[in-house]
Design a protein around this nucleic acid. Structure first.
Lengths: 212, 212
DNA sequence: CATTCATTCAAACGTTCGTTTGAATCAGGC
DNA sequence: GCCTGATTCAAACGAACGTTTGAATGAATG
C-alpha cells in the first residue's frame, strides 16, 4: 500500500526504453514484460493493446513537452511585444525543449528523445497519425510565428524548410550517437547545449536563405 | 542465360516496392512473393535470406548512384581547376543524384529513393552497417570537398552540419509526399527540380552559417 | 469470517514469421 | 530418349508474435 501501481509505470518505462532503441515495430511485448518483470497479460489489462501502450508512452512525455514549447513561444512573443520576434528565438522554442529532454533523465531523458525521433520516421500510418494529432497544436502556433519572423519568404519555401527542419531534428534526436563515431570523436552528442546551438544556428541560416 | 531470369528481377522489383513503402522490417517475404507472383522458396534459392535480399535490392541501385555522385564531383573539381569549388556545387553533386532518382522510373525511380531514405532511419544495426559500408567511399570523397569549400569552418561544426544534411535529405527522400498535405497543397514533391533547388538552397545557407 | 473487486498469473489461442525440405518440372548435352 | 543440373513447387518446420482466458491471489469492506 505504501508503494502502489508499480506495474503500470514499470511497463511504461520498459516500453519507452525498448521502443526507443529498437523502434516500436521491432519491439515485442514479451521483451517489454521481460524488462519490466511483470506478467504478459498485464499489458493488455492496463493498456488494452500494443498500439494503445505506445500511445500512452508518447502522451506521458509529449503533453508536457508541447506545453513547454508553447509556453516558451508565448514568453518570447510577450518579450518582443510589437517588434518582430527574432527567427532564432522561434526556432529555439521549437527545437530546444525537445533536445533538452536528454538533460532531464527524471522526465524521460535521452531515451524519450530518441523514441520521438524514431516515431517521426516510422512508416506505419497509425503512428504517423498519432504524431500528427499530438503535434497539431504546436504546428498551428509555430507556423504563423515563423511566417511573422520571415515576412518576405513565400509560403512554399517556408513549408519546404519546415520539412527539412523536421528531418534534421528527428535524425538528431533519434541518432545523435551515430555522429560521435562518424565525426571521429570530434562531436560530443552528450553536450546538449552545443547540440541545440549547432542545430539552431544551422536552421536559422537555412531559413534565412534567399528565395530563388 | 542471355537475359536475367525473370524470377530474380521480379523478386527484386517487388521487394524494392514493398520495402520502400512499409519499411524493410515491416515487410514479409510472403507479401513480396505475392506481388512478384513467384514461389516462396524462390527467395532463399536466389538470395539466401531476407537480409541478403535487402542487400541485393540496395546494391543494384546504390552502386550506380554512388558512381554518379563521384563522377559529378570529379567533373566539378576539374571545372574549377585551382579555384575553390563553390559549396553549392558540392552539395548539388551529393544531393542531386539521389533526389533525381524519382525522375528516372527505369532506374528504380521514386520507389528506391524512398527506400534509401527509410534505410537511413532504420534502427536495425545490420541495415545501418550495410549503408555505412555502401557510403564509405562517397563520404571519404565529399567530406574533404566540403572542407575545402568551407576552409574557415571548424571540423566539429562541419560534422554537425553533415549530420543535419543527412537528416533533411533522408526525410525528404523517404517522406516527401507528407509535405503535400502538410503544406496544404502549396508544395509539390513531384517536381524534382524544385525539390533539389529548395534543399540545396537551404543546405548551402546552413553550411555557410557563421560558427559560434 | 465471508464477500468483493482489482490485479496477477500460467497457459493457451490462432496467426504469421523466416526458413527448410523433397519431390516435380524443365532445359540442354550426349 | 535419357541423363543432369538448374529451377519451381506445395507443404511443412519451429519459433515468435499479439491477444485471450479463467483461475489464483490479495487487500479492503461489511
Amino acid at each position: 500500500m505504501v508503494v502502489m501501481k508499480d506495474t503500470k509505470r514499470d511497463i511504461l518505462d520498459a516500453a519507452e526504453q525498448l521502443f526507443a532503441v529498437r523502434g516500436p515495430h521491432a519491439t515485442s511485448l514479451r521483451q517489454i514484460i521481460g524488462r519490466a518483470k511483470v506478467n504478459l497479460a498485464a499489458v493488455h489489462y492496463h493498456f488494452g493493446s500494443k498500439e494503445l501502450l505506445l500511445r500512452a508512452v508518447m502522451a506521458r512525455r509529449l503533453v508536457p513537452l508541447n506545453a513547454e514549447r508553447l509556453a516558451l513561444l508565448e514568453g518570447e512573443e510577450r518579450k518582443s511585444a510589437r517588434r518582430v520576434m527574432p527567427l532564432r528565438n522561434v526556432l529555439a522554442a521549437l527545437v530546444g525543449p525537445a533536445l533538452r529532454l536528454s538533460r532531464n533523465p527524471k522526465k524521460g531523458g535521452a531515451v524519450f528523445m530518441q523514441l520521438l525521433g524514431r516515431c517521426f520516421m516510422e512508416p506505419d500510418p497509425k503512428i504517423q497519425a498519432m504524431l500528427d494529432n499530438q503535434l497539431q497544436e504546436v504546428a498551428g502556433r509555430f507556423i504563423p510565428a515563423l511566417q511573422r519572423a520571415l515576412p518576405k519568404l513565400p509560403p512554399e519555401d517556408l513549408f519546404w524548410r519546415i520539412h527539412f527542419l523536421v528531418g534534421a531534428m528527428a535524425h538528431t534526436m533519434a541518432d545523435a550517437e551515430r555522429l560521435r563515431a562518424f565525426s571521429g570523436g570530434r562531436c560530443n552528442p552528450d553536450d546538449t547545449e552545443v547540440m541545440i546551438e549547432q542545430l539552431v544556428n544551422f536552421l536559422t541560416a537555412g531559413f534565412k536563405a534567399k528565395s530563388r
